[in-house]
């Protein structure tokens, strides 16, 4: 573990200036991911700027019926918020399906979005990994990859990476069309969550489109207005990352799907918005057959690896079941 400096500046602008001025500096949220990676030697910042108390810990109503979630809001508080539970139940469910009570108390909303992959090659500095050490190869491609990606991977070349994004919360937020508010050295900008995470492409070392020194200050959720739900399949009943998860929201009228939101977790380098499936669903009947056809269409693009082919039927089943449950609930 490398020695580092620890700073608690008085305001967010000061925090941004500090990290922007330090090429190896990093923001510290709850530290539940970053500190682990530091102990493992995977992250080696020489400066930690603590933003946990700086970024807002408030959840506020927006005029349009949406909510603004301060980046410092603990995962536990977000899951417990009445507005979130009532209007965005997919998000509350996703949060409660993640990590453990202790971690959720400590982890922040901003940090959760930016947590890094759990790939066992990434988290072990003795192994090859293009994400951690560009050019060293992807250990997982031919190695242990049962819980790796089936969509959007880079399967050859120096950018090879088949990792997944581990967050549950982000999958729900993606289905909710969340917008991430960012403060950088050049001022504020709003990034749709769909544009925050990136596929590995040629450069798996970059998880997101954020620039160095950019701080997440809040996440906005626009109003939803129809039922939503999160379903996560995992290796044990609690305290395990998703094998596959589904965040969905469905507006059904007279047996016809009017609006559909569908995002998948555990399948790609980013939370995966299932736009193809959404298009197939809207205007069609709210039946299990139609759901299965839409899921199949989305998963046609899947390129499973030697040992993770199960994620294709698993994702299909979870999509069908979640949509069917939502339809059931809206009858």
């Amino acid at each position: 573990m490398r020695e580092f400096r620890y700073e608690q500046p008085p305001d967010v602008a000061g925090a941004v200036a500090l990290v922007a001025g330090a090429p190896d500096g990093a923001f510290l949220g709850g530290g539940t991911n970053l500190v682990d990676l530091m102990k493992l030697g995977v992250a080696t910042p020489d400066l930690l700027v603590d933003v946990r108390e700086l970024t807002s810990r408030e959840i506020t109503d927006l005029p349009d019926g949406g909510v603004r979630i301060g980046a410092g809001v603990p995962n536990a508080d977000l899951a417990a918020d009445r507005r979130v539970r009532e209007r965005f139940s997919v998000l509350a469910q996703a949060l409660l399906a993640g990590a453990s009570g202790q971690l959720r108390n400590r982890a922040t909303t901003g940090g959760n979005l930016l947590q890094r992959t759990r790939c066992g090659y990434f988290t072990d500095v003795t192994k090859p990994c293009n994400k951690r050490l560009p050019g060293s190869g992807c250990g997982a491609l031919e190695g242990v990859h049962r819980n790796h990606a089936i969509l959007g991977q880079t399967l050859d070349g120096p950018g090879t990476c088949v990792a997944t994004h581990p967050s549950d919360m982000a999958v729900a937020m993606l289905a909710l069309d969340a917008v991430v508010r960012v403060l950088g050295p050049d001022g504020e900008r709003a990034v749709p969550l769909a544009e925050l995470h990136r596929l590995p492409g040629e450069d798996p070392s970059r998880d997101t489109t954020l620039r160095h020194g950019e701080l997440i200050t809040a996440i906005d959720l626009p109003p939803l207005g129809f039922p939503s739900r999160y379903r996560k399949a995992r290796d044990r009943a609690s305290f395990a990352f998703a094998l596959v998860s589904v965040a969905a929201a469905l507006r059904v009228e007279d047996g016809v799907v009017r609006e559909a939101r569908l995002a998948l977790g555990g399948v790609a380098h980013t939370p995966w918005r299932a736009l193809t499936a959404e298009r197939a669903l809207v205007g069609g009947p709210a039946t299990e057959d139609a759901f299965a056809a839409a899921a199949a269409e989305e998963l046609e693009a899947a390129t499973p690896l030697r040992d993770n082919g199960f994620k294709v039927p698993l994702a299909r089943n979870l999509v069908v079941r979640t949509l069917a449950d939502l339809t059931e609930g809206s009858r």
């Binding site: 066992g120 072990d124 192994k127 250990g139 190695g143 242990v144 044990r236 609690s238 305290f239 990352f241």
Partner: peptide, 25 residues
């Protein structure tokens, strides 16, 4: 415990990735 057959390494080596039953199980 998962072994990478080429590297000879154990790939999971913490309690987040080496799963034991939780209370909920």
């Amino acid at each position: 415990t998962l072994t990478d057959p080429r590297l000879g390494h154990y790939v999971n080596h913490d309690l987040a990735e080496y799963h034991v039953a939780t209370n909920a199980d």
